[in-house]
């Protein structure tokens, strides 16, 4: 039975054609329940980024089926017309670097997403400030990104990923530039937010520090995923 969260069955992605074709994803199966945080690990060139791009509706898979937040978005072809709106409303993104917009202050960096969705500016900013309180960056709400520390920038990026209450968050090595303490703090925040907003979160990582925190880990190798139980260590 397919519920909310993330469900992927037999996802495939082939680049090119003929003799030069490369199967980046051969047979990917994943399930992430609402409120759950799973890790996705694999060596370089294993297909992690391709999987993230396919899940993020940035590239089109060549086969399989994807369901996000209870809605089939891909079944051997896109089932959603407006992929931008899908990304805006259903998927939160976090990157290795925060990639905040340098010419917007912290509040508007986060409030921009609901504004793009047509929510009035005041309401969007109120939502952002509410998130800042939970993420402990409220005092920096009017600062410019260049005035923030690395940890603060990453927390603002988390707020941006959460602001539209998406059912899914895709995080690409969000702790890579952080020290152990800050990396664990970010993972703690993500777990808290996942529980609070019932968001399914996939974290692509190489970071040894945070691997023990996952209850489930997906390995990807040569375009195929394998599931493994994690330690689920409390932190």
């Amino acid at each position: 039975m397919i519920g909310k969260g993330i469900h992927i069955e037999g996802l495939k992605k082939r680049y090119g054609s003929g003799e030069t074709a490369v199967d980046a994803l051969k047979n990917v199966d994943m399930q992430v329940a609402p409120g759950e945080v799973v890790g996705l690990i694999g060596p370089s060139g294993s297909g992690k980024s391709t999987l993230l791009k396919a899940l993020g509706a940035v590239i089109e898979p060549t086969g399989g089926r994807m369901t996000l937040g209870g809605k089939v978005i891909y079944d051997n072809g896109w089932k959603v017309k407006d992929l931008r709106a899908l990304r805006r409303d259903k998927i939160g993104f976090m990157f290795q670097a925060p990639y905040l917009i340098p010419f917007l202050d912290v509040t508007d960096n986060v409030a921009l997403l609901p504004m793009l969705a047509g929510i009035p500016n005041a309401e969007a900013r109120k939502r952002a400030v509410d998130l800042f309180k939970a993420l402990d960056v409220e005092p920096r709400a009017k600062a410019m990104p260049s005035q923030l520390s690395g940890g603060e920038q990453q927390r603002v990026a988390i707020a941006r990923g959460l602001i539209n209450r998406p059912p899914v968050i895709l995080a690409d090595e969000p702790t890579a530039p952080l020290d152990s303490e800050r990396a664990l703090a970010v993972i703690r925040i993500l777990n808290d937010m996942a529980r609070q907003y019932q968001t399914a979160i996939i974290i692509v990582t190489h970071d040894e520090k945070i691997l023990p925190t996952f209850k489930r880990i997906y390995h990807i190798r040569d375009g195929v995923t394998y599931e493994e139980a994690g330690e689920g260590r409390e932190f």
Partner: peptide
Amino acid sequence: IREIAVLKLIGTKNRT
């Protein structure tokens, strides 16, 4: 370019 890519990724319309 990077900011424009981020804007597009988070769902900003082309007209914006």
